[in-house]
Nucleic acid binder design. Structure first.
Lengths: 332, 332
DNA sequence: TCGTTTCACTAGAACGATCTAGGTGCCCTG
DNA sequence: CAGGGCACCTAGATCGTTCTAGTGAAACGA
């Protein structure tokens, strides 16, 4: 049943090592001002006692928490990839990450408050859905970096992927394969749906092609529904809003007896783990989660350390051609 | 450029409301000992100033943090479902959740230390891979609840799903449909792979059937590989280690020209969002993430509040029959 | 030799909350 | 009208750190 025992404090270590509290503090945080011999003695004592600094007390006093708050949506696989990369980048920069999940029953604001309560020095918000006013309010308290959404005003930083360029590449790829009847299954109300939609329209028109857009969404179901509604006037290629939607779309085409890419080419967006699955091999536009995450962490740290003013980073995505896009069937 | 301004403290509120620091504290945490009129006055002042209690200071003094540490693997969709449910349950019980992600580059121990640093009063670990010794060490510091793994000794609590019963139901279901040649594609080295494997063996033998087991894993790729190796001696039904593996398996069968469930029935495990996808409709054994999460949070809170000794909760899974299991073809 | 600098270290005051131990009034009781 | 009880409120200590301002001693330069 083992008594839950009080964890050792600086005082305990100081007593064990025969030095003052302050010196132990100096040694523990690796600050200059301690002789090598003493440093070693203190470290030994600390290790002996199993001492771990109490971050609450530490942070209370120091204002620096070395903590980055990161909000993400549970259930978005793409967000999970960003979280992974952010962990790595933060830890390389000497920061810890506080994760906040946004779920259906838990609004983003609630999550952000929790992250601030933990003592986050900056917030990285993946695809935030907050209004610009709310974002501005938080940005008045700590640096805020919006990831994958760039219309966040002057106060907040943003790191996003160039949606126009991504769609341009998608169209370019399909056109260069010989497709002319291309449909975009859009993302409905999802965060980057609008820029992609208008990019598609502009890019198709620029090439003198008809920009057919049908309503979609971010999930497999949306892709399926869109696929089913395609029936009467089947195009030779489809650009889906994202990979999951593309998967649903492919399934729908398959159910209609069509082969991908022989009959219809399908291009996803995100280059998520779904796209990479060996049996899917979905051609996709990669936003490069690790790079985006690293850029976001970089910006957050730069802002915290005051080395730079707010700014907006836009990264160029790239095309990953796999097995779902090909030359259209003759006469398509 | 807006000056990042100091957040208001108890003192500020006290001054604004014309009362003492202590009284504000009393009001803020809803403790008894303040007149209704004063309470209102303080609340108004606090709201006016936009005061939010500093959890670091609060926690430092009070030992109670009302914080539950939850570790999960990014990229495990099933874990994400648990996180969702845990948030809801924790918040209903008046606790906040601290999330810790386990990724390939970030060992579980590292994540746990971070959760403890945040001040977690208890840890909920989803499918922990730590050794029993390490678990015991942490369990000596705070209550530890292991989720989906039950061999964690006396010190830690566990909440798990009855793997034997799950597999028994799976076999039962298939046998009652008329299947006799059933294969189990196992989970390789995954956490619950071994109990499911031996449950399958025992349950098949109990019924006088041949328990065919082939090596698999937790991902689509593993299911595909297993499906491909099935070729020569195709069974009429397969029980996969989990839904993702089942998906890969189905894909492989499809590539071999076999229809599911007409030629082969496939049963998944987890009843994850993948199983529920409208174009998949995978029959699966549900471990009921929300219930498991709620049970884990309950145990953690019970332990923290000292109302109960460590214990092991086992929940019974249930079968969700969808479209991938059916009566075998005549002569199968 | 005597200031000055540097180095190693320490005492004590923060940080922003909670908690303990009172101190007021005010009402009631006998 | 003394004394007890209660409801409301406050001063001051405290949590475990970090930070500021020193202290003492050794090393240095002139």
């Amino acid at each position: 049943m083992s008594e839950q025992q009080r964890r050792p404090t600086l005082v305990d270590v100081a007593r064990a090592a025969g030095v003052s509290r302050a010196l132990v503090s100096i040694v523990m945080r690796g600050a200059p001002g301690a002789a090598e011999a003493t440093r070693q003695k203190v470290l030994d004592a600390a290790h002996e006692l199993g001492y771990r600094p109490d971050s609450r007390a530490r942070l209370l006093r120091s204002t620096r928490t070395k903590l980055l708050g990161l909000s993400f949506s549970t259930g978005h696989a793409f967000h999970a990839e960003i979280v992974d990369a952010a962990y790595a980048e933060a830890s390389a920069k000497g920061y810890e990450l506080a994760l906040g999940g946004v779920t259906s029953g838990r609004p983003e604001a609630r999550t952000i408050e929790a992250l601030l309560d933990f003592g986050s020095e900056a917030l990285i918000l993946i695809s935030p859905t907050l209004s610009s006013e709310e974002l501005a309010r938080y940005a008045g308290q700590v640096p805020v970096v919006s990831l994958l959404r760039n219309d966040v005003g002057e106060l907040a930083d943003s790191v996003s992927s160039d949606d126009y360029e991504g769609i341009r590449m998608a169209v370019e790829h399909l056109v260069s394969l010989g497709h002319r009847r291309i449909v975009h299954v859009d993302g409905g109300t999802a965060v980057s749906a609008e820029p992609r939609r208008s990019a598609f329209r502009a890019e198709m028109e620029r090439r003198g092609l008809e920009p057919a857009i049908i309503a979609g969404g971010a999930m497999e179901e949306d892709g399926m529904a869109a696929g089913n509604s395609l029936g009467p006037d089947m195009p030779t290629a489809v650009i889906a809003f994202n990979d999951r939607s593309a998967l649903g779309l492919i399934e729908s085409l398959r159910a209609q007896g069509l082969k991908v890419p022989a009959d219809v080419s399908v291009l996803g967006y995100d280059d998520s783990q779904f796209a990479r699955l060996s049996y899917v091999q979905l051609s996709s536009i990669s936003q490069d989660a690790p790079l985006l995450a690293a850029a976001a962490v970089d910006r957050a740290v730069a802002r915290i350390e005051g080395t730079q003013p707010p700014g907006h980073v836009v990264r160029t995505p790239h095309l990953v051609a796999r097995r779902t896009t090909a030359t259209p069937a003759a006469g398509g």
